[in-house]
Computed example of a mutant assay.
Amino acid sequence: MSEVMTIRVDRKTKSRLEKLAKAMERTKSYVAAEAIRAYVDLNEWQITEIRAALKEADAGDFASEAEVQAVKGKWRRGAGQMA
Rank of each mutant, 00 (worst) to 15 (best):
M1Y: 06
M1A: 14
S2H: 14
S2F: 15
E3A: 04
E3I: 07
M5Q: 12
I7N: 07
I7P: 04
R8K: 14
R8G: 12
V9Y: 05
V9I: 12
D10M: 05
D10H: 07
K12T: 15
K12W: 07
K12E: 15
S15T: 14
S15Y: 10
R16W: 02
R16Q: 12
R16C: 08
E18Y: 09
E18T: 12
E18V: 11
K19V: 08
L20I: 10
L20Y: 05
A21S: 03
A21M: 02
A21R: 03
A21N: 02
A21Y: 03
K22E: 14
A23W: 07
E25L: 05
E25T: 05
R26N: 00
R26Q: 03
T27S: 03
T27K: 01
T27E: 01
T27Y: 07
Y30E: 13
A32H: 04
A32L: 12
A32K: 01
A33M: 07
E34I: 05
R37T: 11
A38M: 08
Y39F: 11
Y39D: 10
Y39N: 10
V40L: 14
V40Q: 05
V40S: 02
D41F: 11
N43T: 08
N43K: 11
W45K: 13
I47P: 00
T48K: 10
T48P: 01
T48D: 04
I50S: 02
I50R: 04
R51F: 00
R51N: 07
A52T: 00
A52L: 03
A53C: 03
L54G: 01
E56Q: 06
A57N: 02
D58G: 04
D58K: 10
D58P: 02
G60M: 00
G60F: 00
A63W: 11
A63E: 13
A63L: 15
A63Y: 09
A63G: 06
S64Y: 01
S64M: 04
E65Q: 10
A66K: 14
Q69H: 13
Q69I: 13
A70N: 10
A70R: 13
A70E: 13
A70T: 13
K74P: 04
K74D: 12
W75T: 11
R76T: 11
R77Y: 09
G78A: 13
G80C: 03
G80K: 09
G80Q: 12
M82I: 15
